[in-house]
Amino acid sequence: MIEEFISWFKDRFGGDISHLKEFFVVSGEKRIRMVSPESKGINGIIKGIYIAKKVPFGFSLSIEGSQILGKYARRNVVSLDKETALVWMKGEDIPLEGHAVDKGTVIIKYKWIFMGSGYFDGQRVRNYVPGERRLE
C-alpha cells in the first residue's frame, strides 16, 4: 500500500515523496502512518502519526498528512481566504468555483497553513476535518 500511496500522490498532486518512504508504515487495513525509522522496532500500541487513509477514490490526507506532504503538491491544492478557511475548520463543505482542480482528493490551505484534505465532486469540496478538530 505504501508504493500505491507514493504513486497516487505523484499522480494526484504532481509531487515526488518517494524519499520519505522509510518513514511510512501501514496501520490496519487502510491507514498509513509516519514513524521515525528508529521507532519501527519498538513495542507499543500506537506509533507515530496518522497521515493518510485509503478510500475508494484513492487516499485522503489527515491534517498532519497535509502539513507534512502539502509542500510537495504542485496541483489540486485549494487556497482559501480567511473567511472560507474558518468555514472549512468548522467542518462545512466548500463550494468551489474558479479553481483549476480535478475531481478527487484536494489539499486545503490558507496562506502557508495546510488544513487537511477533502473530496472535490466537481461543485464543492466535501469536508474531512474530523469532528474533534473542528472549530465551534
Binding site: F23, N43, G44, I46, I49, E132
Partner: peptide, 21 residues
C-alpha cells in the same frame, strides 16, 4: 489519559513517539 496523549501526539506531528499502555 492515553486518548488525550494520542490526540496531542497526533496534533503536534510527533512521528518519533511510540505510545505504550
Amino acid at each position: 489519559r492515553i486518548n488525550a496523549l494520542s490526540s496531542n501526539i497526533q496534533r503536534m506531528g510527533c512521528m518519533n513517539v511510540v505510545i505504550n499502555r
